[in-house]
Deep mutational scan, measured.
Amino acid sequence: DTFTFTLDGIEVRLHGASEELIKTIEELLKRDIRWEELEKWIREWEK
Rank of each mutant, 00 (worst) to 15 (best):
D1F: 14
D1E: 12
D1H: 14
T2Q: 07
F3C: 03
F3S: 01
F3D: 01
T4D: 08
T4A: 09
T4C: 10
T4E: 12
F5I: 07
F5H: 01
T6E: 13
L7V: 15
D8K: 02
D8G: 07
G9V: 04
G9S: 05
G9K: 02
G9R: 01
G9A: 04
I10V: 14
I10R: 10
E11G: 02
E11N: 05
E11L: 07
E11R: 03
V12H: 14
V12C: 08
V12M: 07
V12Y: 15
R13C: 06
R13D: 09
L14V: 12
L14D: 00
H15Q: 12
H15I: 15
H15F: 10
G16A: 08
G16S: 07
A17E: 02
A17M: 09
A17V: 14
S18F: 03
S18P: 10
S18W: 03
S18N: 10
S18L: 03
S18G: 07
S18E: 06
E19G: 08
E19H: 11
E20S: 09
E20W: 09
E20M: 13
L21N: 05
L21S: 04
I22N: 01
I22L: 07
I22H: 02
I22E: 02
K23R: 14
K23F: 10
K23D: 07
T24K: 15
T24G: 15
T24Q: 15
T24F: 12
I25Y: 01
E26W: 06
E26M: 14
E27T: 12
E27R: 08
E27F: 08
E27V: 10
L28A: 11
L29A: 02
K30H: 10
K30Y: 07
K30D: 08
R31V: 08
R31W: 10
R31E: 06
R31P: 04
D32A: 10
I33Y: 06
R34T: 14
R34C: 08
R34Q: 08
W35P: 04
W35S: 03
E36S: 12
E36W: 08
E37P: 02
L38S: 00
L38H: 00
L38T: 00
L38K: 00
E39D: 09
E39T: 05
E39A: 06
E39G: 05
E39M: 13
K40L: 11
K40Q: 13
W41P: 00
W41C: 03
I42M: 06
I42G: 00
I42P: 00
I42L: 13
R43S: 13
E44L: 03
E44K: 02
E44W: 04
E44D: 13
W45E: 05
E46G: 08
E46L: 14
E46V: 11
K47V: 15
K47P: 15
K47R: 08
K47I: 15
K47T: 14
K47E: 15
